[in-house]
Simulated assay, not measured.
Amino acid sequence: MKAIEAGADTFEKVSAKTYACQGAGCCERLIYRLLEFHQAHQKEQASSDADEQTLPVDKA
């Protein structure tokens, strides 16, 4: 997750930074799941941030 959070946004980049899947390849599915999770979280966060910007300001 640290590699993904640091900008490794593809399977190949994660593998290059972490040396994952450079042998048996048993962790390939895990890397793809982590990438999907991170991307979904980023979209959710962006949506939440956009919603906060459109809320009316209480002037009371």
Rank of each mutant, 00 (worst) to 15 (best):
E28F: 09
E36M: 09
E44Y: 02
I4Q: 15
K43Y: 06
I31N: 15
H38F: 05
D58E: 11
H38L: 04
I31L: 15
L35E: 02
T18E: 01
D49W: 00
T10P: 00
Y32T: 09
L55A: 13
K17C: 04
D58Q: 11
L35W: 12
V57T: 05
A46G: 09
E52N: 05
K43L: 01
F11D: 06
T54C: 11
I31M: 14
Y19M: 08
Y19L: 03
C27P: 11
K17Y: 07
M1Q: 14
M1A: 13
E28N: 12
E36W: 02
C27H: 02
E36P: 07
A50C: 03
A24C: 11
A46R: 07
E52Q: 09
E12H: 08
K43R: 07
I31C: 13
I31E: 14
G25Q: 04
Q42T: 12
A60W: 01
A50P: 00
Q53G: 02
D49N: 01
C21V: 09
D51A: 11
Q22S: 02
A40C: 09
H38I: 00
E5D: 03
C26K: 14
L34A: 15
K2E: 04
S48I: 03
Y19D: 04
F11K: 04
S15D: 09
A3D: 05
I4L: 15
D51F: 09
E52H: 07
I31A: 15
A60L: 11
Q53Y: 08
E5F: 03
R29S: 07
H38T: 03
D58P: 14
F37A: 13
A8F: 01
A50Q: 05
T18Q: 09
D51I: 03
Q45T: 10
A60F: 10
H41W: 09
A8Y: 03
E12T: 04
T54G: 14
K13L: 13
G7L: 02
S15E: 05
E28V: 08
L30M: 10
C21Q: 14
T10S: 01
T10W: 02
S15V: 05
E36V: 09
K17D: 06
S15P: 06
L55Y: 13
E12M: 03
S15G: 12
K2L: 01
C26Q: 10
R29W: 05
D9K: 02
S48F: 00
L34Q: 15
K17L: 00
K17M: 08
C21P: 11
M1E: 12
H41E: 12
E5M: 05
